[in-house]
């Protein structure tokens, strides 16, 4: 139970970072984000993604455009804002720090 909790916390933080990174590459649709995450073996259900996207959008990190779709209703395509790019850069720095911290901590571990 303790382990699960920590795992969830770790993934939650990373998830936002990953999503922002994926969106920063190009304009993208929600289910394509899922596909990308799946490729990265960070598996989430779509239901988790929508609240996250909405929150990031409301924080001004993302914006979206409606685009017509051939199969069904119009789709929301998300793209990153300038503010989002700034945040992403800060996150990059943080991630590198974290990576260093983790690697250093793990270096001489025996178990």
């Amino acid at each position: 139970m303790v382990a699960e909790n920590t795992q969830v916390q770790m993934r939650k933080g990373i998830l936002e970072y990953c999503i922002l990174s994926i969106i920063s590459r190009k304009e993208i649709y929600a289910s394509d984000i899922i596909a990308e995450l799946k490729k990265a073996e960070l598996l989430i259900v779509e239901g988790t993604l929508y609240p996250l996207l909405t929150r990031l959008k409301n924080n001004g990190l993302l914006s979206y455009n409606w685009k017509e779709s051939t199969s069904g209703p119009p789709r929301k395509y998300y793209e990153i804002t300038e503010e989002g790019q700034d945040v992403l850069k800060k996150l990059d720095v943080t991630w590198k720090e974290l990576l260093f911290a983790v690697e250093t901590s793990l270096e001489h571990r025996t178990i």
């Binding site: 969830v8 993934r11 960070l42 598996l43």
Partner: peptide, 9 residues
């Protein structure tokens, strides 16, 4: 229940 967990873990 999956949303609660955040991620399919």
């Amino acid at each position: 229940s999956d949303f609660e967990a955040g991620i399919l873990e």
